Amino acid sequence: MYKTKVCNGWTYASAKKKTAIAKVKVCLNESFVLVINNPANDNHENDALFKYITHNVFNLIRYKNFQVFALVKGGGLTSQAYAIRLAMVKCLLCLNDGIRPVLKANNYISTDCRMVERKKCGHCKARKSCQFSKR
């Protein structure tokens, strides 16, 4: 259903949330490993909300023997976390379609298409305009 690619035991998928783009590769492993970008200079692992959003998928399906490598750029930390989660879900659905009802019940499969509205010409922001003077 999703655009995923399987090569040498790895499953590849990508996902977007606002302006954040995540590319994820997943394979089975003896223990759980999640690597995001370059862990030496990133602060993704320190953020509790980021960790909750990304790890909650594996807690939900009750199976943690995966090795996950994610490359994410653009957007903020929360958008990046949701993009990574959606890409991981795409990979997991490619590996096992039996977990679809559980993920769908928790609304992990749906994508969010909302984007920032563009700035209009002659306005201060997208909707805010200059003060109107009657005289």
Rank of each mutant, 00 (worst) to 15 (best):
K3W: 03
V6A: 09
N8I: 04
T11Y: 12
Y12F: 15
S14N: 12
A15W: 04
A20I: 06
A20D: 05
N29P: 09
N29K: 05
F32L: 12
V35E: 08
N38M: 01
N38V: 02
D42H: 12
N43D: 10
E45A: 02
L49W: 04
L49C: 05
F50E: 00
K51T: 10
K51M: 02
K51V: 11
Y52W: 01
T54S: 01
H55K: 14
N56Y: 13
L60A: 05
L60W: 02
K64W: 01
F66L: 12
V68S: 06
V68M: 05
A70T: 08
G75F: 14
A81V: 08
Y82H: 13
A87D: 03
K90F: 00
C91G: 05
L92M: 08
C94I: 03
C94V: 04
L95N: 09
D97E: 09
G98R: 14
R100M: 07
N106T: 12
N106G: 04
N106E: 10
N107Q: 12
I109M: 13
C113I: 15
R118F: 15
K120P: 00
G122I: 11
G122C: 07
C124M: 09
A126W: 02
A126N: 09
R127Y: 11
S129F: 01
S133C: 12
K134S: 05
